[in-house]
Design a binder for these strands. Structure first.
Length: 504
RNA sequence: GGCGCGUUGGUCAAUCGGCUAAGACGCCUCCCUUUCACGGAGGAAUGACGGGUUCGACUCCCGUACGUGCUACCA
């Protein structure tokens, strides 16, 4: 069975911006297409990077998108534990196995030793590789006795991979095809740190093997270290079980110059996180797509289309359609600049194609935040159908709806004042009175009544519509005025007319 | 600097050797609407550059340029 996994750093800023969620989404789509499992992993090897609450935030963010892992830290699974720090002894065990088989070695170098090497103290190289390793303090240069002595004295050490010389390491990437690297250019990566925690390189290989992962998706930034992982699969004797790799293109800043980062959001005025996130360390508030008024369906749709294309002209896809159509082959190779205007268009399109029923919970929530609690669901449904084509973000429903429930807080009388006449004043006074005797309260009858009176008083009905709109909405927007008039009711209509006339 | 990956309009992109190079976002014009939208019709705007291979190249190959990533006891 197919198992696709996504790994996250233990902080939202470390992984759960747009790129991270997209990796999870593609992993989920790929897994579900084949009826397989989506596995969520959380990194927490580096205590300095751990952020309180981040794990739950990651799980919540994915859940909002409709991505529910089949295995993961919060739900478990038969290959647990799923949290890195709880698998510590496993990594040590395999690191030792590599030392024994001669594919890894102990290194006792201090920070100063490493710094010296990086400053170029040795010829040919300034990284820990086949050139420099013979100058360093490790079990390759030390005698067996010396090494054992240092270990016995509990000298801090790391375990490094012994990268072979003059080998071409090749692997197949599902998106990019065959990729080859010369082993001479690779460095002896640390596998097990001095605190006995694994680095990503060791952990990712051990975990993927033990959890029987079949497909590993990750960002393109991992491509340069993929040969290290291939080497590890081989040296641990698991080459036959190596997952298929897919390195996803990067999401770049809209204005060029690099990967999209958490700070770009506020700099450019759009969210880069799924949900609001209050960083407990810095107390910095990052904004999320959800809180900005995105429908999860639209967010998922937008993200899916950003780096993948079905090949057809259709742009709007539900999660199920995405699952059906998704394929690794159609993921793009090149990074793309994020376009928030397009993102908003997806949301607008989703609001547009959603039934009022489906939008109702969102609208209720938005209105209740402003202390408006509609009592009549049927009429709310009707109001939603009147205004939904005018909303880009869900939050727009407040601006587009509130005047159905409350008198407008401001009247933009500047739009009518210059052309205001005593005749118009008279008209509205008369009409307000005439409404008391209107035979039925229907949109059509209100409109007919209005137009007939206008004709009697010899005023063009069109000239009176803008003032009426300002009375009801407060500004120059919104659906048909008679629809609004009908919806708010006769008394409220009369009240708003009066308020307006007083304001003039 | 070294190495990896990439390069079709302003942006997202289709094309898997036949191109008069789709579509979408954004922008502009017009229609609809005496509001704002939605909707409809139209418009401007693209193969980085230089060599090959081929009857034919956006598509394949090689160089160059540019972009981007990695080069930590971070992921």
């Amino acid at each position: 069975m197919q198992k696709v996994r996504t790994r996250f750093a233990p902080s939202p800023t470390g992984g759960l911006h747009l790129g991270g969620v997209r990796t999870a989404l593609y992993s989920y789509l790929l897994a579900k297409k084949q009826g397989g499992d989506f596995v969520l992993r959380i990194e927490d090897t580096d205590q300095n990077r751990y952020v309180e609450g981040a794990e739950q935030y990651i799980i919540d963010s994915l859940a909002w998108c409709g991505i529910i892992p089949d295995e993961g830290p919060h739900i478990g699974g038969q290959y647990g534990p799923y949290r890195q720090s709880e698998r510590k002894n496993l990594y040590t065990q395999y690191a030792m196995q590599l030392v024994k088989s001669g594919h890894a070695y102990y290194a006792f170098d201090t920070t100063e030793d490493l710094e010296k090497m990086r400053q170029g103290a040795y010829e040919h190289s300034n990284q820990y590789d086949h050139h420099t390793r013979r100058h360093m303090k490790n079990s390759l240069t030390l005698s067996e006795d010396e090494t054992q002595k240092l270990l016995a004295e509990k000298t801090p050490f790391v375990i490094r991979l012994l990268v072979p010389e003059n080998e071409i390491i090749s692997f197949y990437d599902e998106i990019r095809g065959d990729i080859q690297n010369n082993s001479n250019l690779l460095d002896d990566k640390v596998l097990l740190k001095a605190d006995a925690m694994p680095t990503y390189h060791l952990a990712v290989v051990v975990d993927d093997y033990l959890m029987k992962i079949t497909h590993a998706l990750r960002g393109e930034e991992w491509l340069p270290s993929a040969p290290i992982h291939v080497l590890l699969w081989k040296y641990l004797g698991w080459e036959h079980a190596m997952p298929k790799w897919a390195h996803l293109p990067l999401i770049l800043k809209p204005d060029g110059n690099g990967k999209l980062s958490k700070r770009d959001g506020e700099r450019l005025g759009f969210p880069v996180f799924t949900l609001n996130w209050l960083d407990p360390n810095t107390e910095h508030q990052y904004f999320g797509f959800k809180e900005m008024g995105f429908m999860p369906e639209a967010f998922v749709n937008m993200l899916a289309m950003f780096g993948w294309h079905s090949g057809e002209e259709q742009e709007l896809f539900s999660m199920q359609e995405l699952i059906d159509k998704f394929s690794l082959e159609r993921i793009h190779k090149s990074g793309a600049k994020f376009d928030f205007e397009k993102a908003k268009w997806f949301n607008q399109a989703w609001i547009h194609q959603s039934d009022s029923d489906a939008l109702m919970p969102y609208v209720k929530e938005i209105l209740s935040q402003k202390n408006i609690t509609p009592t009549d669901e049927k009429s709310l449904l009707h109001i939603i159908s009147l205004v939904k084509d005018r909303c880009v973000l869900l939050n727009d429903f407040y601006t587009q709806c509130y005047y159905f429930f409350r008198a407008p807080h401001q009247l933009a009388i500047q739009h009518v004042k210059p052309k205001w006449t005593e005749e118009k004043n008279q008209f509205f006074k008369s009409w307000s009175g005439a409404l008391d005797h209107i035979e039925s309260w229907q949109v059509e009858s209100i409109e007919t009544n209005f137009k007939q009176l206008a004709e009697q008083l010899q005023i063009k009905a069109g000239e009176l519509q803008m003032p009426l709109r300002i009375m009801l909405v407060g500004d120059k927007y919104g659906p048909n005025v008679f629809q609004i008039a009908h919806s708010i009711g006769k008394e409220e209509l009369q009240k708003r007319i009066q308020t307006f006339l007083n304001a003039l």
